[in-house]
Amino acid sequence: MPGNTSNLVRSNVTTVNVDQIPGLNTLGISLVRIDYAPYGGQNPPHTHPRGTEILVVVQGTLYVGFVTSNPENRLITKILYPGDVFVFPIGLIHFQFNIGNTPAVAFAGLSSQNAGVITIASAVFGSNPPINPDVLTRAFQLEKNVVTHLQSLF
């Protein structure tokens, strides 16, 4: 069933992992369905610390990518159409963004019964308790008021 995409990121991730199906325990697999609103629906930058992801687009057009690890930090991107497949290696920051004017749908298999997910902006600016703004000001080379504003959003 399509997920509700009326939220800030305009997407919905429906997860099928060991939490929903206990029989997946020790099998090293899980699945997600991602629904994206027309132009701008996104699965924001995130990482899966315990699994590689393979994504297949079934509807729409997605701009996808990942960033390689330090020190290179090279961005690898591709535009995907229905039937196209893309792999996001374990632990690397990656994203998907709907560049089409119609809804998009993709399915992803993950090489873990619970790959985990760390959404970068939420983790950095929405931690509980908050990370000291002085740390983030220096790390991101931003003004303190920008950091505190971003923290207030999460």
Rank of each mutant, 00 (worst) to 15 (best):
M1C: 09
P2S: 11
G3H: 02
T5Q: 02
T5F: 00
S6T: 15
S6I: 10
S6H: 13
N7V: 04
N7R: 06
L8P: 10
V9H: 04
V9D: 08
V9Q: 09
R10C: 02
S11T: 01
N12Q: 13
V13M: 00
T14D: 12
T15G: 07
V16S: 03
D19E: 13
D19M: 13
Q20V: 11
L24E: 11
L24W: 08
T26G: 06
G28M: 11
I29R: 13
L31S: 09
V32N: 12
V32R: 04
R33E: 15
I34N: 10
I34G: 10
D35A: 02
A37C: 07
G40L: 00
G40K: 00
Q42T: 14
Q42E: 15
H46N: 05
H48E: 04
P49D: 08
R50W: 11
G51Q: 00
T52I: 13
I54K: 05
L55A: 02
V56W: 00
L62E: 03
F66A: 01
V67A: 07
V67N: 03
T68S: 15
N70E: 14
P71T: 06
E72T: 14
L75H: 09
I76G: 09
K78L: 09
I79W: 06
L80I: 07
L80H: 04
Y81I: 05
P82Y: 12
G83N: 12
V85P: 03
F86I: 04
F86H: 02
P89R: 08
I90L: 15
I90F: 08
G91M: 12
G91R: 13
L92I: 09
I93F: 12
I93M: 15
I93N: 10
F95M: 01
F97S: 07
N98L: 13
N98C: 14
G100C: 12
G100V: 13
T102F: 09
T102A: 14
V105F: 06
F107G: 06
A108F: 09
A108T: 14
G109C: 13
S111R: 00
S112Y: 02
S112C: 04
Q113C: 06
A115C: 03
I120T: 12
S122L: 07
V124S: 07
V124H: 03
F125W: 07
S127C: 12
S127E: 08
P130V: 12
I131L: 08
I131P: 02
N132V: 04
D134F: 08
V135E: 07
V135G: 08
L136Y: 06
L136Q: 10
T137R: 03
R138K: 15
F140T: 03
L142Q: 02
L142D: 04
E143I: 00
E143A: 11
N145R: 08
H149Q: 14
H149I: 01
S152L: 11
L153H: 08
